[in-house]
Design a protein around this nucleic acid. Structure first.
Lengths: 216, 216
DNA sequence: AAAACTTGTTCTCTTTTTGTTCTTTAATTA
DNA sequence: TAATTAAAGAACAAAAAGAGAACAAGTTTT
């Protein structure tokens, strides 16, 4: 199984690279040529040496250093790996959403590590909830919600809706040909009725998170 | 923050460090060079001495002290060890918790990548909530909760409590000298009163997650 | 207090490991 | 068949690891 496809690498170089990537860890000593030989089923260091040289030329393995031995991957190699395996970057936290106020964006976008279960295949982002309009659905003030970026929704979905291009809010949506209704999950609040063209779906709720120790 | 990169250590230095980390708890007193030699199968203190010097330079072993002998690890060494374990694996998902039923453990422990905001420095694990006993706190059936492993709690904390060593439940806790009260967050349910010795705290709630797409 | 023992340190010397280079051999391709 | 490529193995130098002796400063035993 090749994890990365560097077409300019030979077959054996690929194999070596894959092995290094799989067994790489910050906390383990990089393997020596002999150990790599054993792992790859070679009997001579000399044979392996040529492949390593190729990987060094490709910038995927650190240039040898008389002082620091072992075959270690470069940052480049590690970077391309994480990009290939999972989106290791996480999900961007873009701001807070309060009923009736546009999304207040954060200046420096942070990325949060989100478990796979809380996101979808498609582009997602994170908002922090302000207010109690969804409290009956167990979405409290301060919760983070994972939103899948979309411009359409099904009836009953919880959506990020932009009203009249000015106000953003998190609500249940009910769309009919004549009107669009945004329904809070809070017995003290009333559903809001709009002309369909007034409401723009910006995403649907796919995940939610809460911290009981860090409040902000 | 600098990544814990031990790659500047030589093989043997790493071996010695590993040994010290693994057996650290077994030593009443920090081991002497001779004891370490014996343990590592060396015949000369002089050989070992060089490796220890390397570890001292790396800040992983305490600088020697004529008065206080033995090889002792620094705080840094202990810290980086636990950091290595937790960061790589994520948080283990150990099972489901329903009011009045022991935790049903999953057979193959999965690890979930949890955002830093939802966990603490200490050991955490994940449970899936069954039932509606905490619904007024916005904790719904099917939610995942992140629990910090602990055996004590403060009044008002939401805890995983083991009752009479048989039933596990997620509730608010109120401890007095005479009794321990477990309080559900559900208007239709009553607080439960116990003798203090009947209730065992297994952890406190530090984070919570919900998926709107994957139900199980 | 003196002798004997521990413990960490330093030194020299030897052995082993490791990366490199080279030649030879086997396998594959043109 | 000639040319190309990959592997094996030998040889080598530098680094790392090890053994053992010697020594100083402290402990313990006598």
């Amino acid at each position: 199984m090749t994890m990365n496809d560097y077409s300019f690498l030979t077959r054996k170089q690929q194999d070596v690279l894959d092995f290094l990537l799989e067994n790489q860890s910050h906390f383990v000593q990089p393997p020596t040529l002999d150990e790599l030989c054993l792992a790859m089923g070679l009997k001579s260091r000399g044979s392996l040496h040529k492949h390593i040289q190729g990987l060094i030329q490709a910038g995927l393995v650190e240039a040898p250093n008389r002082k620091q031995r072992g075959v270690r991957l470069t940052k480049l190699a590690l970077k391309t790996q994480s990009a290939a395996l999972i989106d290791d970057l996480g999900v961007p936290f873009v701001g807070a959403i309060a009923a009736g106020v546009p999304i207040e964006a954060v200046e420096n976008v942070e990325y949060m590590q989100v478990p796979a279960q809380l996101k979808t295949e498609n582009r997602c982002y994170i908002l922090q909830v302000r207010g109690d309009s969804m409290i009956d659905d167990g979405i409290l003030d301060g919760d983070w919600v994972v939103i899948e970026q979309r411009n359409h929704a099904n009836n009953g979905d919880i959506v990020v809706a932009l009203i009249d291009k000015t106000e953003a809010t998190l609500k249940h949506i009910l769309q009919t040909p004549r009107e669009t209704i945004l329904i809070p999950a809070n017995q003290t609040l009333q559903p809001m009725h709009f002309q369909p063209h007034q409401v723009e779906v910006q995403g649907i709720l796919v995940g939610q998170m809460r911290s009981y120790t860090k409040k902000l």
